[in-house]
Write a protein that binds this DNA or RNA. Structure first.
Length: 306
DNA sequence: AAATGGTTCAACCGCGTCGCC
DNA sequence: GGGCGACGCGGTTGAACCATT
């Protein structure tokens, strides 16, 4: 039998969103907040299914989304989180709040997969991540590869994190000045710019200028809208550097103490732990080699497979 | 300038999960 | 506990764009 498609209604529009639709959706969410997606098409008159509305909002219109090229730090973070978490893009995206899971997934599939494959075939002998399939290898090989993956992930994430801290100043400058605008594909720029202009126009039309913000609390649209032409793009771009992820709060002693034992194991497996936790674990050499390694955990879970 | 092939990314589809009744 | 609806996630698609010939 199977579930009937959610969008099989006649008259439901598919395909690319128009700026007008974007405005309608954004203005509705400004007023009511995200959620209750089922009601959105009915209340806005949009000829879109609820899913499509949610997707459009979360992947494109939501404030605070950073567009454009990924930084080296982001790239490294994605690679190593992917090695740890697998293709759990939503979980990975939770460590990069300015990127959507869709973006990360696309970036992985279009850039990083190739990059890592090149590295692999380049003969360095390292399996760079969980890219390659585990299905075709024996259990022993799988164990060794997992250990290699984990160690490699730890090492490289350490590098990424230290790099991050060293370069955060320059990154922040770059970000605040438009975040790699020079290298951004023109299509991307133009589309975000268009939306931003529309939003700007919509904001001006609004009778409640103070309400130029979305529910997430981010006010990039609001602030950037008043900054002139260049900031049209910045309306969507977030100037906030990745550094914010690694602020002082993210590495509290409490977080370090609660490393991968007991509940944390479950948390890691569910990828719900704060970055500080995974970071502290990754930076804690003793854990990987010591009492309870991730390998043990992974093998515990993997043993169910054999 | 036109044709062709490759790349990118927004959007769709189907399934899993969660919460409510 | 089971059924149902809503939402979230990951995989996939296809149109638009870009580079090369």
């Amino acid at each position: 039998m199977g579930r009937p498609p959610c969008c099989d209604k006649v008259g439901v529009k598919k395909g690319p969103w128009t700026p007008e639709e974007d405005i309608i959706l954004v203005s509705y969410i400004q007023e009511h907040g995200p959620g209750n997606w089922r009601a959105v098409p009915a209340k806005t008159g949009l000829l879109r299914c609820s899913k499509s509305c949610r997707l459009r909002w979360t992947n494109y219109l939501r404030p605070g989304i950073k567009r454009g090229n990924f930084t080296d730090q982001e790239e490294k973070l994605i690679i190593h989180l992917q090695a740890l978490l697998g293709n759990r893009w939503a979980a990975i995206a939770s460590y990069l709040p300015e990127r959507t899971d869709n973006d990360i997934k696309n970036y992985w599939n279009t850039h990083l997969k190739k990059k890592l494959k090149k590295l692999e075939t380049g003969g360095d002998g390292l399996t760079s991540s969980g890219v390659s399939s585990h299905h075709s290898i024996s259990k022993g090989q799988w164990e060794r590869r997992l250990q290699t993956d984990i160690n490699h992930a730890k090492q490289a994430l350490c590098e990424a994190l230290s790099l991050e801290k060293h370069s955060s100043l320059s990154d922040s400058k770059a970000a605040s000045s438009g975040y790699n605008l020079s290298t951004r594909p023109a299509t991307y720029a133009s589309s975000t710019e268009n939306i931003s202009r529309l939003l700007e126009a919509w904001t001006r039309k609004s009778t409640r200028p103070g309400d130029c913000r979305a529910n997430s609390g981010s006010t990039q649209t609001d602030s950037a809208c008043s900054q002139g032409t260049q900031s049209a793009t910045n309306c969507i771009l977030s100037p906030e550097p990745l550094e914010s992820l690694f602020g002082p709060d993210s590495s509290t002693p409490e977080a370090s103490e609660t490393s991968l034992l007991g509940e944390e194991r479950k948390l890691l497996l569910e990828a719900q732990e704060p970055l500080s936790l995974i970071e502290s674990w990754l930076l804690d050499e003793s854990v990987g080699q010591g009492q309870l390694s991730l390998l043990d955990m992974a093998l515990d879970d993997a043993s169910e497979l054999f």
